[in-house]
Structures are given as structure tokens and as C-alpha cells.
Design a protein around this nucleic acid. Structure first.
Length: 282
DNA sequence: GTCGTCAATTAGCAAC
DNA sequence: GTTGCTAATTGACGAC
């Protein structure tokens, strides 16, 4: 009688009643666990790639146009393509007070990049920041940047290669995408968050299924124990089942040896005790 | 102190 | 109006 015949998890034998702890510690458990994991389940299996594309209804924005204005980030309102859609870089009356701070923050963070080009970019951002601060007309309502399909595709491609970027990669990618490095950074950050969320959901479903399976198995085993108990009571004790049966437990070892005659003197038979709590079987 | 990353959150926008 | 997606912001934290 196999204990695992009703479950393919390989975790059935000797589960007892602490199923979750058995299931939540597979070797798949991540070695790259983020330092803070507040989700209920934090298993990280092989990296998956959820197809989280940035669905766009508007891939008409020309990168060239985007470039000019992205470099004038934070404040510039972009008149998009010929259909009249608006593309504006981040700016907001509400966020106005933070805009310059953010820009200077970007400047600060990117200052360590030593190339001249970087310095130029930084200077552009600095200027943009000033423009932002001076923009008091209130017409620069915050609008959300929508990445083009090409931009999204390139970012996705890059993310597949590395889920994090070093400053040079970030800079290069930003240049390639005609975005600010900060935007690339944010995109990667959000992308990692989405991946993690997705992974958590997958893990949750997996563990839920596993838990259900184990619960069923536990129920089945409990039932089996009850049946065997009833059987034991119904039979004369000399007709106890052979020692090899799975119902044997250490506390009834002597009785189990009845059909072997000398079992009482024989060395302790080695048999598998499937119960975490032997008394449960007696 | 700076920097990079994170979780949590906000907010714009499109689809319904 | 609601919902889902996602760009962007904020503050905390660890590493250096």
C-alpha cells in the first residue's frame, strides 16, 4: 500500500499534520529573496516572464519628437502625432513643488557618471528643472508618459537580459530609447515589482493546490486509521495483521510480532512509521 | 553622506 | 463611474 498513490507531490509520506511547513520549503525556495518580503508567500521559483507588455493604444508617437521633449522633461507639453493626441512629460500642478526636487534628485543620482555626455544630460535636466520651476501658468497638468511599443519592446528585451541595470546600462538604454535615465530606472523598478507580484500570485496558487492535495491526503489517511482501528477491535488480537503492514507502530510492536513467534525477542524490526505521532495509530 | 533598491502609494489614462 | 494598468513619487533601508 503506497502512501503516495493519491498524491504526486512527493510530500505525502510522513506528513502528519504540518503540511504547510513541508511544502513551503522546497529547494526552489529563492536564493535571491528580496530583503523585505511582505507577501504571504515568498517562494521564488524559476524566473518566469509574464508577458506584461505595456499595452498601448498609441504607438504613433515618433521617437524623434519624443526625444526632444523628453530631454526637456518635467514641463514640456508635447503635441503628439498628427491625430492631435497630447504627449506631455511629467509635470503637474500638484507635483509642481516636487518637480524641481525630483529633477535635482535625478541630477544628483546621475552625477557620478563620468562621461561628458552624461554631464550634458545632467545639464539638460538641470535646465529643465529651472524651466519647470518657472512654469507657473498652471497649464502643465500632469500627464502620464505612455511608452511607445518600440520602447516597451526594447525595455522588455533588456529586462529579460538583466532585471537590474548598472548606471552605464541605464544610461545607454535611456539614450537608445530617448528617455531620461530616471524613466528607465523607474520602468525597471515597476517591472520588477510586477514580476514579483505575478510570481507571488503563481506561488500562491501553487501552494493552495498543494495544500488542498495534502488536506485531502490527510483526510484519507485519517479515515484509513479509523478503519484499521475498527478492524483491530473487531479481530481477536492473535489475528493481528502482519508486521509488514503499514498500521504497525512502535507502541504495538510486540503484538505485531504475534505471527512471527519469536518476534518479542527478535531485534527491533525496521519498518517505516508513517505517523508523526505514533499514538495516533494505537 | 551617497547611492541603489525596495514597498507602498498616488495618479493619469484607456477600456468597459 | 469603475477597473486595470502603469508611470511616477515617497520614504525606508542596506551597502559602500
Amino acid at each position: 500500500m503506497g502512501f503516495d498513490d493519491g498524491c504526486n507531490t512527493g510530500l505525502v509520506l510522513g506528513l502528519g499534520f504540518s503540511t504547510m511547513s513541508s511544502t513551503t520549503s522546497p529547494s526552489k525556495s529563492h536564493g535571491t529573496t528580496p530583503k523585505i518580503m511582505k507577501h504571504a508567500f515568498s517562494l521564488k521559483f524559476d524566473e518566469i516572464e509574464p508577458s506584461l507588455t505595456l499595452g498601448l493604444s498609441s504607438d504613433h508617437l515618433q521617437i524623434g519628437t519624443c526625444r526632444k521633449n523628453n530631454n526637456n522633461n518635467n514641463t514640456m507639453i508635447l503635441e503628439g502625432s498628427s491625430n492631435g493626441d497630447l504627449y506631455r512629460q511629467t509635470s503637474s500642478p500638484h507635483a509642481h513643488s516636487t518637480t524641481s526636487a525630483v529633477s535635482s534628485f535625478s541630477v544628483k543620482r546621475e552625477r557620478d557618471l563620468s562621461s561628458e555626455e552624461t554631464e550634458i544630460d545632467v545639464e539638460i535636466e538641470r535646465i529643465s528643472s529651472r524651466v519647470s520651476d518657472e512654469d507657473e501658468d498652471g497649464c502643465n497638468a500632469r500627464k502620464k508618459l505612455r511608452l511607445t511599443k518600440q520602447q516597451s519592446a526594447l525595455l522588455e528585451e533588456s529586462f529579460k537580459q538583466h532585471s537590474t541595470l548598472n548606471p552605464k546600462q541605464k544610461q545607454a538604454l535611456a539614450r537608445q530609447l530617448n528617455l531620461r535615465p530616471r524613466q528607465v530606472e523607474v520602468w525597471f523598478q515597476n517591472r520588477r515589482a510586477r514580476t514579483k507580484l505575478k510570481q507571488t500570485e503563481v506561488d500562491y496558487e501553487l501552494l493552495k493546490k498543494c495544500c488542498e492535495t495534502l488536506t485531502d491526503e490527510n483526510r484519507r489517511l485519517q479515515k484509513e486509521v479509523q478503519e484499521l482501528k475498527a478492524l483491530k477491535l473487531a479481530q481477536p488480537f492473535y489475528m493481528h495483521m502482519p508486521a509488514a503492514t503499514l498500521t504497525m507502530c512502535p507502541s504495538c510492536e510486540r503484538l505485531g510480532g504475534a505471527d512471527h513467534g519469536s518476534a518479542a525477542k527478535a531485534p527491533k524490526p525496521h519498518f517505516y512509521n508513517p505517523f508523526t505521532n505514533p499514538s495516533a495509530a494505537c
